[in-house]
Each structure stands twice: as structure tokens, then as C-alpha cells.
Design a protein around this nucleic acid. Structure first.
Lengths: 201, 201
DNA sequence: GGGCTACGATAACATTTGTTATCAAATCAA
DNA sequence: TTGATTTGATAACAAATGTTATCGTAGCCC
């Protein structure tokens, strides 16, 4: 049998995700750092240049931006999902987005620099690049669908779709964040909910 | 000097884009086919499985979908841009989107099969993969920004931004398409325009 | 436990946007 | 050119959504 590292579960998952074998990964595993942080902790602020990618082991996170003092939520992330202010990280420009915990979280991260080290040493392996391509497709399709539903659907329909497709959000995220994610005021989301309750009691 | 192929300008650009040298490209150039088509020609319909990627040499194109009989426009494409129903093409699922010319067009395309042939033969070259990664980032950032502006900005602001960032759309695209692209009715876009005219005469 | 804060529901009113209808101008085809 | 179609503006009204204010509840910190 191959030499077996005793990695934390999260790192083992990351290892598989990147398609790196045990022995190679041993050299890199120390690049991944763990945070244990309370709810409402800011991981990245508007204006900062993102130099970390986050991997959520436990808890949930929202990505939002400031619009004239109003907090508008772009997306929620839960266990085993990867979060970054991807445009800031890629282009090294100031982030438009905040990343903030909603619940107490256990989160791993890696710095851009360390990721590039891995990249340089394993660049000939295509797995990392393919992983990135898959990730980008996934994110792209997510935004296209979400955007499409904004053009096509009423807030009620978007809320129903959210219940169906991502009930975790309904259960774990405060409602005013959900409202801004759906593009309506929290007052209107209340209306939508009571309308839904009347429809299906 | 290297052997010089006498390629049409568009193919020369595609060659560079893919990072393939002249000699190698000679074997592939016949995979790219040219269309000369009138305005309002449908290149891909809802329900079809996309098996082509289009490169616009001349003219413009819109990508739209049907929502209860209403045509909702997702995006416009102009000269030297690449268009596809990317999710359908990648996953080989029925397309949600239509691709349709707005003006008379000269458009090149390559089939998925031929693209894969190139890919297999040049897979060791990373340029194609890097090109894809760059393209995906670009598309992703585009959708994120567009979506963000839907959450943050009024239709008036979105229209002003369009004038500033992509005046070609204003000049070349019929207004009711622009309205659906901005997420408002064509009647309301007229209102927005006259409001703008009053503001800055 | 007491007080504070965050969260969510509801009402009343204001604003924005959609819908339908009509008309005028521009474009296109025969 | 002429007639038909497309495009765009406007008015009048309807529907959707935002805003502000108020209230009650639940959770949380000390």
C-alpha cells in the first residue's frame, strides 16, 4: 500500500480535488491554514485585494457588496464549497465584494502565492488546470441561471425555486439576506411569503 | 522566413487566438467554415443541442430566450467576438437560448467534433486550454458585473452605463431588444430615454 | 432575569414599472 | 412608388415593489 498521510478530512478532499497524490501533497499540505471564527466575521472587505481562496469545512458564508449603504447579497456558500472574490484574486484589483461568515465557521484557506507555488511545481499535471476549468464553467452556469431567473421570474417564483433548489439557504440564512439575494426588499419578501402561505396552506 | 499561408484575416486571428503556428494550423484551417447570412437568421434554436462555436467577422448577433412568448435578450455580440450556447455545447444538453443575427453577418464556425480533433492533436500544447480559461474568466466577470448592475442600479443607470461602455449596442441594436436586455419593457425604456433627454438636453 | 438587539410581520403610502392602446415615423419589400 | 411591417413615442391605467413606521418575538449578553 502507498504511504498513508493522516490528513484532516478537508485536506484529503482538497488533495483529491486537485488530483494530487499523497506523496506529492505532503509537501504542500502545510500551505493550507485553518480558521475557526465566529459568525459575522469579515474575511475580505471591499477595496482589499483578495489573496486567499477559502474552503468551507463547517458553517456558511455570504458574499455581498455595498450599494449606497445597502448590503446586497450576491451568493451564499456552505460546507465543502469554495469561495473567493474571484475577479480580485485573478486580476489583483480591489475587491468589490465582501466575504463574511453567517454562522460560526471552520474554514481553510490557501494564499495566492502558495497556490502559485503548487502550480509551478505541478504545472505539467493538467488536473489542476482542468479543475479550474470545471470550476469556472460551474460558476458561469450558476450566474447565467441566476441572472436568467431575474429576467424571467417574479420574486415569488424565485423564492419557490430557492426553496426547491437550495433549502439550506431558507433554513440557515436570515431572511433579510435572502431578500437582498432575491433582489427585493425584506418587506416585500415577507409579502411574498405570506402570499405563498395563503396559496399552499 | 517561415512558410506563409495565405489565410483569410479571420482565420489568421483564430490561429493566433489558439496559439497554433502556421504549419500546424494548415491542417486545421479547413475545419472552419464561413457563413454569409441575412439579418434575423437563427443560428441556434431553443431545444437544439449546440454543436458549433461561432466567430463573428462582420455584423452582430443576439442571444435570447423565450419566456412565455416574450423574447428576453441575454447579450449582444459584435465583430471579433465568439458566441456559443456554452452550456448546451459543453454539456450537450438542449439549449435554453436562441442565437440570432441582428444585421446581415459574415460568421465563421467550427463544429464540436472538429474542435475536439484539434484538441486531441494539440492537447499537449497548453495554449488552447489557457485560452479557454481566459475566455471563461472573461464571460464570468461579464455576467457578474451585469448581474451586479441589475441588483444595484436603476434602469436609467443601466442605460447610461450601456451608452458609456458599449455604445455600439445603442447604435446598432433595435431599441426593444435593448429594453429586454436591460430588463425593462420597451415602453419603459422610451420613458427612460425621454427622462435622460430632459436631464441632459 | 433584565435589557438590548436582531429579526420578521404588517399597514399605509409613494414610486416604479408593466400593460394596453394609439399614433407617427422609418424601413423594407414588391 | 406604394403598401406592409417594424420600430419607437406617448398617454392612461393597473400591478408590482419600495419606503417608512410600528409592533411583537426570539435570541443573546451581562
Amino acid at each position: 500500500m502507498a504511504f498513508q498521510l493522516d490528513l484532516p478530512l478537508m485536506l484529503e478532499q482538497l488533495r483529491k480535488k486537485f488530483g494530487i497524490n499523497d506523496t506529492q501533497f505532503a509537501a504542500f499540505s502545510s500551505y493550507f491554514k485553518k480558521l475557526e471564527i465566529p459568525a459575522k466575521t469579515t474575511l475580505l472587505e471591499e477595496g482589499e485585494i483578495a489573496n486567499r481562496i477559502f474552503f468551507i469545512e463547517k458553517g456558511c458564508v455570504r458574499v455581498w457588496f455595498n450599494s449606497d449603504g445597502k448590503e446586497l447579497t450576491m451568493q451564499f456558500f456552505f460546507e465543502n464549497e469554495t469561495v473567493a472574490s474571484i475577479e480580485s484574486f485573478k486580476k489583483q484589483v480591489p475587491s468589490l465584494l465582501y466575504i463574511e461568515t453567517i454562522e460560526p465557521c471552520e474554514i481553510w484557506y490557501i494564499s495566492k502565492q502558495d497556490l502559485e507555488t503548487i502550480h509551478q511545481q505541478l504545472g505539467h499535471t493538467l488536473d489542476i488546470r482542468n479543475e479550474l476549468i470545471d470550476y469556472l464553467f460551474e460558476r458561469l452556469f450558476h450566474y447565467m441561471h441566476h441572472f436568467l431567473s431575474f429576467l424571467r421570474d417574479s420574486p415569488l417564483k424565485r423564492y419557490e425555486a430557492l426553496i426547491k433548489d437550495n433549502p439550506m439557504v431558507i433554513r440557515r440564512v436570515p431572511q433579510h439576506y435572502i431578500a437582498s439575494y432575491l433582489g427585493v426588499s425584506s418587506v416585500h419578501l415577507s409579502r411574498v411569503k405570506s402570499e405563498l402561505a395563503r396559496k399552499k396552506p
